[in-house]
Design a protein around this nucleic acid. Structure first.
Lengths: 332, 332
DNA sequence: AGAAAAAGTGCAAACGCTCGCAAAAATAGC
DNA sequence: GCTATTTTTGCGAGCGTTTGCACTTTTTCT
């Protein structure tokens, strides 16, 4: 609003040094005599001086701010990822500008451009499918980008994920081994590259190998979608499903129970991304436990390196996941 | 990193106008001749000019950024609030810097000061209990603050909530009416002002009036806390609980069921803040449905007014809630 | 003690934009 | 056609920092 009350200039005058010296003290530059530093610090404290980060950003071209691009904050999957990111960001003194993309009110390019205009030092992208124009915008500004919990088919940016192919084979293998041979994938976005290029693809190959017909139910994103989908699954004779979102899995589970089906004896369910929701459902959901917090943390750490122009050793980091056998599958 | 490639100056030169005129075009100032505007816009597009928001912020003293202070991103309660905030923020072209406070690694004052140093135009505070020093920092920088889903005992800042006193009486009234007379409050933070000054206080008065002994179980924040608490509740002869967090409520519910208790016949549960989790649990949880999205949206709208120095009519906005009678309480 | 090296400090030009003011151009009024 | 208005433009001084460079002061080494 109005002019800042106390600036670096005031501190300089009061401490009888130049602005440059105050700046050095503020930034912890070691080339300052101890007595000078103490004098300046005393004045800073006395005057309640706080550096203006905007001016710092303009002068230094670094804002110590990173952008987070996320489809939906209220999805625990992204919330957990974000928490890992946030903790590491704090550690390295970065602030986080969060931008949710699902918001149809504005278009993605515009939103990301506005993020870039804020001169963020880096971006962690958790949404699906970078558009070409978004990539151009990143290129133009030379902003480092890391993908967390998602991949891009171009392989242009480093990513932190789990091995989706392996996880897919694991879960369907489990169902198959349990004697369920009419399996289905229930996914949210069929066009995201994680789903299209990994989960669905690996599933199709698995089906082919086992001589089963693949069943894919797309665009299921909330509890009710799941609840209502169950009727279709029953009609199609499905006896085992893997579900990308556990909220949807809960819907299916409850619908199956309400329909008098016996889970896991007649019908098995596995969710491919466990959140606390999975442990709440009864019977508790067998799930792939992705190390979401760690994925976020690793992604952020990676980004700090990129922002410092350090070398990174791996471009595609895959963290270990855990298949937690709970009560919606038979005990092995 | 390096110098910005194309600046307002380049556009000005190319379009044969002054920087001032380009600035006017960029900011939609109407005092520009149509032909001039078009010429400038053409150059902007051709050169891929994007205004540097940091420089704009320094020059104009407005960053079009607001700070969000939140205890925990992975708590759906805050996530839903944030979504409401985010949508309205987008609408008004504000970006959001999110700061989670629970993070014990750094202290709250420092975190908030760093937010303020970024020159945010306003803050939405969703955590509990502003500290005096935090308030001083807000005052010093003259930053408007709105509370969402929380209150401050000083009543210094506008807030958007539901009527916690009324909601408390509602839920305990319901349990009492159902014939449950050994009631308990299971809360997270017993010292937050919402809990201390409203929920617990109203509950104590209710107990006094009905001649019941109040039971308060504090510091219960996750599923396991809830699950394990059940044993104590049973021992203490409790036959009806209200729980602030539904994740905890789910823990209690499942423990009760596992213990062979009949819900709701012998034991009733109500959760005081419903999230999608409540509908997943079986039997589905009776809950107070707070209009979280709307609370966030209203809070953000309020903040935009404050940031524009507009008058606001109400200091404490209370939105209507709904008591949803589901399956963990007797049908009326 | 004197020279060389190292450490500490100041100067002032950026950084990219906004905005009050004054000047110029366009329009209106008669 | 000539003023009086109104609309468009340009000028340039900030906004609050950082940082390369040059200049002092202090320390180190013979």
């Amino acid at each position: 609003m109005h002019k800042q009350d106390v600036t670096i200039y005031d501190v300089a005058r009061e401490a009888k040094v130049s602005m440059a010296t105050v700046s050095r003290v503020v930034n912890g530059n070691s080339n300052v005599r101890k007595e000078t530093r103490e004098r300046v610090m005393e004045v800073i404290k006395r005057l309640h001086y706080q550096p203006n980060a905007v001016a710092q950003g303009l002068a230094s071209k670094r804002t110590t701010t990173v952008g987070l691009v996320v489809p939906d904050l209220t999805n625990l999957y992204f919330a957990e990822l974000s928490k890992g990111i946030d903790d590491i960001a704090h550690l390295y003194k970065y602030n986080i500008i969060i931008t949710s993309i699902e918001n149809q009110l504005v278009n993605e390019n515009q939103t990301i451009q506005s993020l870039l205009n804020k001169q963020v030092d880096g971006v962690i992208y958790m949404s699906n499918d970078l558009s070409d124009s978004t990539i151009e915008a990143f290129d133009r500004t030379n902003t480092p980008v890391v993908l967390a919990g998602t991949v891009d088919s171009r392989g242009k940016y480093p990513s932190v994920t789990i091995d989706y192919d392996e996880a897919t084979l694991d879960v369907f293998g489990q169902l198959y081994q349990d004697g369920k041979h009419h399996l289905a994938w229930v996914v949210g976005d069929t066009e995201s590259s994680v789903n299209r290029d990994h989960r669905i693809k690996a599933y199709r190959e698995f089906c082919q190998e086992k001589g089963m017909e693949p069943h894919i139910y797309g665009h299921k994103t909330n509890y009710h979608d799941g609840y209502e989908l169950y009727a279709d699954l029953a009609k199609d004779g499905i006896d085992g499903v893997v579900v990308t979102r556990d909220l949807v899995a809960c819907g299916i589970l409850n619908a199956a129970l309400d329909a008098g089906k016996s889970v896991p004896d007649d019908f098995e369910i596995i969710t491919a991304s466990a959140t606390p929701m999975a442990q709440v459902a009864r019977p508790s959901l067998t799930c792939v436990k992705q190390p979401l917090y760690d994925m976020g943390a690793v992604a952020m750490r990676l980004l700090t390196k990129l922002m410092n122009n350090e070398d990174i050793d791996e471009q595609e980091i895959k963290l270990p996941y855990e298949l937690m056998r709970k009560a919606t599958t038979l005990n092995k």
